[in-house]
Design a protein around this nucleic acid. Structure first.
Lengths: 213, 213
DNA sequence: CGTGAAATTGACTAAGTTCAATGGCGGTGG
DNA sequence: CCACCGCCATTGAACTTAGTCAATTTCACG
């Protein structure tokens, strides 16, 4: 069984190339809360997330975690730092234990990327990332707290059932107090209702959508 | 003279492919303050900046321009929206009049991107973009106004001579008042001096760097 | 010089965070 | 079975950061 071939990014690789890749890579498992890499670290290894959930965040001057994104497999992680020979711009921590394929980037010859199939996969990954970052910028620089929360409610109404408000607040980079206050405000204005089981029902979709569109 | 061949992105194209590209593209000049595209618009055209300076910004609920980046040639602009078939996430306006090559993206066959040289150029462009957005996020979500200004002083001390403070404030997404106040504060603390000709001299590099590192 | 834009300064406002107190609720152990 | 404990949610009040508004000064340039 060859696990590398199962990774979409490398599924179209020739056997010869798979061998080359195997020689310079290895799999490693991580437990929840383990750090894959820290912001500011120099890479040298290209990471491919195979299993688990990986949270990407930055740390501000007060030491608080600023949420950026969560990766689910399969995902190329931190490739920018490798390609550009720069430090990791954020920290990656496992929220749910998982596994990564670690590739020695320095040994990865450039002609590897000449393979059109690989190129396309990298383009896809980078495109995804530009999109993610673009959304982060929109969410954090353009939307107010209320708008962020309204958007989250419309896009993930079900998450309130499974995820504690304190964690939703963290994902939205908003204090739990602000989330609480905003939810009560939206309830008062009859835009939503929330029952005992944290089922969120949107009563006035037009109005709530208008808050962020 | 073939202008397409002069564009780095396409310099390695075969004559045949250049012909194909010519058939589905054209050059267009823009004056200062003209808009190349608006945030929210659907693309359909792939833009390559050939000449001039293009400012990318988003607009918040109050109608204010939130500065993202300025492009100088050569640059692929707004390709994300094309690749992902989504709306432009920001507005692009010419700050200095210029010219773009406009390519009909719908007619651009996918096999065009199979060309490894083109692929590499696209990867380069996307990488650059991830880096830009990553910096924007750092600047706007992690740094305080003071830190942003300190960083700008260290990285571009000479710009104060040529660019008005009001424009620097716009680039930093800070009000002119905040910039003014912060500069006087830094002068009071003897971190910098600014003479009549707007020459900024850093007196205490360690201290000023510590404000954002 | 005079004029208009830019810079400065002070007072106020807005948005959201922080801090602290309180209340609810579920799980646990006697 | 119930009392207790700890976590989470809620609420009010103070605080912080930066933006806004307005008045004044400075400055470049015709």
């Amino acid at each position: 069984m060859n696990r590398i071939k199962e990774i979409p990014l490398f599924s179209k690789l020739s056997d010869k190339n798979v061998k080359r890749l195997e020689a310079i890579s290895y799999f490693k498992k991580y437990n929840t809360d383990e750090i894959l890499f820290y912001e500011g670290e120099k890479p040298g290894i290209l990471h491919v997330l195979i299993d688990g959930v990986l949270k990407l965040y930055k740390t501000n001057a007060k030491g608080q975690e600023i949420y950026i994104h969560q990766f689910v497999p399969p995902a190329l992680v931190g490739e920018l730092a490798n390609f550009e020979n720069m430090k990791f711009p954020a920290t990656a921590k496992f929220v749910i234990k998982g596994e990564v394929l670690k590739i020695d980037f320095t040994k990865l010859e450039k002609d590897f990327f000449k393979n059109p199939e690989i190129c396309m996969e990298i383009i896809k990954s980078l495109t995804k990332k530009v999109k993610i970052l673009s959304n982060v910028i929109h969410q954090e620089m353009i939307l107010t707290s209320e708008a962020k929360i309204a958007k989250f409610i419309v896009e993930h109404p079900n998450l309130f059932k499974t995820v504690k408000n304190i964690q939703i607040a963290a994902i939205l980079n908003v204090s739990p107090e602000t989330l609480s206050r905003t939810l009560t405000k939206l309830k008062k204005e009859k835009y939503i209702t929330i029952d005992k089981e944290y089922n969120v029902t949107i009563l006035n979709k037009v109005a709530i959508t208008a808050l962020y569109k």
